[in-house]
Design a protein around this nucleic acid. Structure first.
Lengths: 291, 291
DNA sequence: AAATTTAGCTGACTTTAGTCAGCTAAATTT
DNA sequence: AAATTTAGCTGACTAAAGTCAGCTAAATTT
């Protein structure tokens, strides 16, 4: 009875409605209705086009217009015409607006700090929060190309290497493995994709090409908090699509029998096991796929 | 940067505001404003006194009165005077009200089911949800006396025994240990407390007395999802207070060195290690505390 | 018994959110 | 160049939520 999944889920909903709802309500402390505060925050976070903000917050054009007017009359924002298309309008925060935005940010940060500081096991709590947030937002996970040397990419790769080191008996040292050149994992020869759940990178996959009709899939990784959401398949499918678009007809990849989930996934996704095709010391299972 | 705790906490807040907020909005599908629906739900869940519901939902008397009026005119509730105090009013659901309440429950259940069914690792997700919900609601955790044979008590004890079985090399079989009689852990001789986080039991502790001035603390357990919140100390303090009130001047307890957190906690809470005082095969560390 | 407190009701009010039709002006299509 | 589409604004509206003063009647205190 106390293990009933539905009951547990609903308990969770109640808890976050109460607690996170209370956090939201604190925005009212700055003497501005929530709607206006949300618009100011969206603008502060870099959403500059009126249509974009309206869309993001799901507002009617009339309501949006009035909210902008009220922020404008408070002297927090300035509206100007988009130079490309004078019908569209662009929001800019005035310095007072910047300050007000920062005040909201500080409020949120402070609340987060309050909750986290009281916890002896903040790391466990955050891990759980990441997992829940990723699961709830699964339909909004986006795959975006990235430079494999960008911070988010290095974050993913670092986690990936750490995990390999934990899984392999002999550990893992990337300098002993054949680490692709960044240029080989970027257009036009290749690609490096990151899966974003909101602002957290939760997975990656690389396509290493050299312009020929064979390319290699590398660095397929899904964060522990994002497993079970079918993200690896989604990343693989995107990589394959990109490979096809780049004229690749044969894909290769190497992996290791200590990663049985990965091996099983490849087997179930149309990959054929083949003989070793490189002398990298880490992999012991090799696959190919004809596109 | 992607590991910044505050950033991660705020990502969680955004995710639940979006997702759980969307679940709430579905209540509007039944053609009733959210306020009225919330009152109906509170009444359906057993909150019968108007003041209690008003307090729970944080409503003004005027607003509450109007919401009750609207539910009454819909034929969903009946209001009557409290027999003890005719100023107070009591809400009763009519059969139409019961049906409507059940429809809301079914809606919530269905939403929970939808989210959970899509997840391959629903158990991991629920574990994380329990942890987050317990952490966020930590200030609302309540200790309540319970019959040690009640379902919630058996739930806690079962989890406790499972954990002992995992921790002890030789496993744990409660029938080989000295399992207290239920009557010894109930007033007036003893006590059995459960820590409730909303409707989930997340900890327990027993006081086993026999009417004399010595009593024993038994079955102190905190659910993994509730650890790090200081619950064990809170339970112990409540047990000690109850023991004092029952005229106990000396408390005993036995534990095991395979539970080092527990041993450390007792040491830091004024307990003194003493020699073995029973022949139970499982404990190997013994404590006493003079009250 | 009188005074005070408490629980709830009512009317009059405000704020916030949101909808909708019709408008202007710029951009795009024909 | 005319017609159409698009982006946003405005006025007039509604619904929901919430506030507040003043009221009644029951209960409690003095």
């Amino acid at each position: 009875m106390h293990d009933d999944p539905i009951r547990r889920f609903r308990r969770f909903s109640r808890a976050v409605t109460t607690e996170v709802g209370a956090l939201d309500a604190s925005f009212l402390g700055r003497g501005r209705p929530l709607g206006a505060a949300r618009v100011l925050n969206a603008a502060g976070k870099g959403r500059r086009e009126v249509a974009e903000i309206r869309d993001y917050l799901g507002l009617d054009t009339g309501l949006m217009s009035r909210l902008l007017r009220s922020l404008e009359s408070e002297g927090l924002i300035k509206l100007s015409a988009d130079p490309q298309d004078a019908r569209r309008r662009v929001v800019t925060l005035t310095s007072a607006g910047q300050a007000e935005f920062k005040a909201y940010e500080a409020l949120s940060d402070e609340q987060a700090r309050c909750v986290l500081e009281r916890h002896k096991r903040a790391d466990t709590l955050l891990e759980a929060m990441d997992l829940v947030a990723t699961a709830l937002g699964r339909d909004r996970i986006e795959l975006k190309p990235e430079d494999p040397r960008a911070p988010a990419a290095l974050h993913c790769l670092g986690r990936y290497y750490e995990e390999l080191a934990r899984r392999f008996d002999q550990g893992f040292d990337v300098s002993l493995s054949c680490d692709p050149e960044a240029g080989d994992m970027m257009p036009p020869r290749g690609l490096f994709l990151i899966a974003w759940s909101d602002d957290l990178p939760v997975g990656c996959a690389g396509l290493k090409g050299h312009g020929g009709d064979t390319a290699e899939v590398k660095r397929v990784w899904v964060a522990p908090v994002a497993r079970g959401l079918g993200l690896a398949r989604r990343l693989m499918a995107a990589i394959e699509t990109a490979a096809r678009a780049q004229g690749v007809t044969r894909l290769l990849l190497d992996t290791n029998s200590r990663l049985p989930e990965a091996v099983a996934m490849y087997r179930h996704s149309g990959w054929t096991q083949i003989a070793r095709f490189n002398d990298d010391p880490y992999p012991d299972v090799f696959f190919e796929k004809r596109l």
